[in-house]
Design a binder for these strands. Structure first.
Length: 477
RNA sequence: GGUCCCAUCGUCUAAUGGUUAGGACACCAGGUUUUCAUCCUGGAAAUAGGGGUUCGACUCCCCUUGGGAUCACCA
């Protein structure tokens, strides 16, 4: 059987949004599940849209997600170069072949003329077909020195386009979908339509995964494959990713995020990967949380969804929380850059922060929540009369209770067990429900009504800090 | 306008002719717990509509409706 070789072929025009990344993910997962190769090819044939640094950004994004590139601009391979602007000679060679075989001609019309034809067709509510304006065969020609002077067009043949798509099944289109399209632009660069076909062949790509926007142009590709005498790779159409409210394809305008934004918000690579894989693919079981490897192990193209999926942030957050909880605290700690911690944390040792993380891990959904959840571990709380309120506790009871607690804690070892024993005993002595006194101490020690378990929190804060804070709180009453 | 694609709870999806249409997120209600979170239990929630085919249709066919793609010297 032919080696499985898939590719991701973005153009370096800026951000890499989640839809594109999900397509890359599927192509990668399919290659990996078949011991195949995943190729990254940069399609930079439109100089005007190219954005500086975009290629590096694409590479970094894939790397972060764990989508490893076997061959590409950043990974040597035998079938490169993997950047289209470095392959112009190859396209020229194939173009010459088409010319020799009578499948290409130089454009007899100016851009303005073509635009006019198109406008006319639009007014008549007719589809615009260039081939209807193609001069008769006897007048068709290829200008000498055409390269970089005029555009080279493909002379299509007419047939009933039919093909098989692994995801969508048998597809077909009308003859109206066949037309003479530009192979080589006037600037000497090939169009996508031409270049990707040459490259996929040269790079021995076995399966093409791409978005459904390419279904409409597949008939044109089929005509070109035929003219070049190439057997097309297998094709699989990926379902679109839609924005949350509307049914539109997710685009930058809808706030489509660049994948690396999820990294900067503190999402885990595995969480985002798991989430993206679940949009348009499932393994048929009821499992929801997958590791990257589990996805590869169970991946098949046949289980890819036909219809589009809406992007649901809540699900991503939930999945990410799951991955965070599943991870050993030490490993998680290593993934959290300093910038995620509150500023005051820089004064604390990394051992201390690790302990804090241990307490927060089960409620942390993504790292950007860290400052809010952890601030009081690093900074003195700022409380006043009002913050030290406890339900079911009379205001006059607070001061004596706090005083008694301070005395009690002063005599206690700050281990979780000892603290629990001592404070439960205190509650009993005072004839109060444990929750009542715990609530008071939580606020006094942290300035917050919400915190991890009280004993664990006090143990991490330590005796000195705890007693200092309780005394301060007492002063405020 | 032409050509093409898609259609199960609000969302992600399972069920490839026979299920009380399943799971998950979110939501609601209980429980565990010192608060929050976690965890556990339960609830509400879907086959777009209409025709066929069939003993039987989410599943196959047709029409309608709705959504989407595309018709560049962009990819």
């Amino acid at each position: 059987m032919q080696e499985v070789r898939t590719r991701f072929a973005p153009s370096p025009t800026g951000l890499l949004h989640v839809g594109a990344v999900r397509t890359a993910l599927f192509a990668w997962a399919f290659a990996k599940s078949n011991n195949g190769k995943f190729i990254l090819r940069i399609e930079d044939t439109d100089k005007s849209r190219e954005v500086q640094g975009a290629t590096e950004h694409i590479i970094e994004s894939l790397e972060w997600l764990g989508i490893s590139v076997d061959e590409g601009p950043n990974a040597p391979g035998d079938l490169g170069p993997y950047i289209q602007s470095m392959r112009l000679d190859i396209y020229k060679r194939y173009a010459q072949q088409l010319i020799n075989d009578g499948h290409a001609y130089t454009d007899p019309y100016s851009t303005a003329q073509v635009a006019e034809f198109r406008e006319e067709a639009k007014l008549l509510k007719q589809p615009f077909l260039y081939r209807q304006f193609r001069p008769e065969d006897s007048k068709l020609k290829v200008e000498e020195d055409w390269y970089k002077k005029s555009t080279l067009r493909f002379k299509t043949t007419i047939f009933k386009p039919e093909w098989h798509d692994i995801v969508r099944g048998d597809l077909s289109a009308g003859e109206e979908s066949l037309d003479d399209f530009v192979l080589i632009k006037a600037d000497g660069y090939p169009t996508y339509n031409f270049a990707h076909i040459v490259d996929d062949f040269e790079m021995k790509i076995s399966h093409i995964m791409r978005g459904e926007e390419f279904i409409a142009s597949t008939p044109k590709f089929l005509a070109l494959y035929k003219a070049l005498g190439i057997t097309p790779p297998k094709m699989a159409t990926m379902p679109p990713i839609l924005n949350q409210n509307g049914g539109k394809k997710l685009s930058k305008r809808d706030g489509a995020k660049d994948v690396l934004e999820y990294r900067s918000q503190g999402f885990l690579s595995e969480g985002v990967f798991n989430f993206l894989a679940g949009m348009g693919w499932n393994d048929g079981t009821e499992q929801e949380v997958f590791s990257r490897q589990e996805i590869v192990d169970n991946f098949t193209l046949e289980r890819i969804q036909k219809s589009g999926a809406k992007f649901d942030d809540q699900r991503l957050v939930w999945l990410n929380g799951h991955h965070i909880r599943n991870m050993p605290t030490k490993d998680l700690f290593k993934l959290i850059d300093d910038e995620f911690w509150p500023e005051a944390a820089s004064k604390s040792s990394s051992d201390y922060r690790l302990e804090v993380l241990g307490l927060l891990q089960e409620r942390l959904k993504y790292f950007a929540e860290l400052p809010e959840l952890s601030e009081f571990f690093f900074e003195e709380p700022n409380y006043n009369q009002l913050t030290i309120k406890v339900k079911k506790l009379d205001d006059t009871q607070r001061a004596p209770l706090l005083k008694a607690s301070i005395e009690c804690l002063d005599q206690t070892d700050f281990t979780v067990e000892a603290l629990e024993l001592a404070l439960r005993e205190l509650a009993q002595t005072k004839n109060l429900k444990p929750g009542t006194i715990f609530g008071l101490l939580r606020i006094a020690a942290t300035g917050s009504q919400v915190a991890p378990g009280l004993f664990e929190t006090l143990a991490v804060l330590g005796k000195e800090t705890t007693l200092r804070r309780l005394t301060q709180a007492l002063d405020q009453l």
